[in-house]
């Protein structure tokens, strides 16, 4: 297990956080900031939200960065909520004040001409601040990138 992975529990569920899987789509903190607040440590606080609302957000995380297990009678049961499969068309979503989320199969040709195949999901920097271009590394959150607040 990655040392940076964390798990957080309330009485009903355990939410698992895998930072390496995160593509910075931002759905979690944009829609349920009280629970998912990147400026707080620890950044996830399950006591700040209803379990159903937390599950809804975790299910809408586009990767396995956020997953959850239900705690029933003290036992943990896997949630069995596979993330949606990927269609032939590549879907690009502009995330509000965030990156371009890309879902599908395609080839990336980087600035140096090298190629990389993407099989399911990645995210592209849209603010020009990423240290790992053309991919998003979450830097826009720290520097402030608010082009879509209109």
């Amino acid at each position: 297990m990655d040392k940076k992975e964390r798990s957080y529990s309330n009485d009903e569920i355990t939410v698992h956080w895998k930072p390496r899987e995160c593509v910075h789509a931002g759905t979690c903190f944009r829609e349920l900031r009280k629970v998912f607040d990147p400026s707080r440590r620890p950044w996830i606080d399950l006591s700040e939200g209803e379990t159903a609302a937390i599950i809804d957000i975790v299910d809408r995380c586009p990767t396995d960065a956020l997953t959850y297990d239900r705690i029933e009678n003290g036992n943990i049961e896997a949630s069995n909520t596979p993330k949606p499969s990927v269609a032939e068309t590549v879907n690009f979503s502009i995330m509000r004040n965030g990156p371009i989320l890309a879902e599908g199969k395609f080839t990336i040709i980087k600035e140096d001409g090298s190629e990389q195949n993407v099989k399911s999901i990645t995210s592209f920097c849209r603010c020009g601040l990423s240290k790992n271009p053309p991919f998003c590394d979450g830097k826009h959150n720290k520097e402030g990138f608010f082009p879509d607040n209109f």
Binding site: E88, N91, F106
Partner: peptide
Amino acid sequence: NKVTAIKNGPLVFEGNFRI
């Protein structure tokens, strides 16, 4: 489907995609 990162320029999307 292809995404090209132009040096000091934009991202170019080519192929079957939806934005």
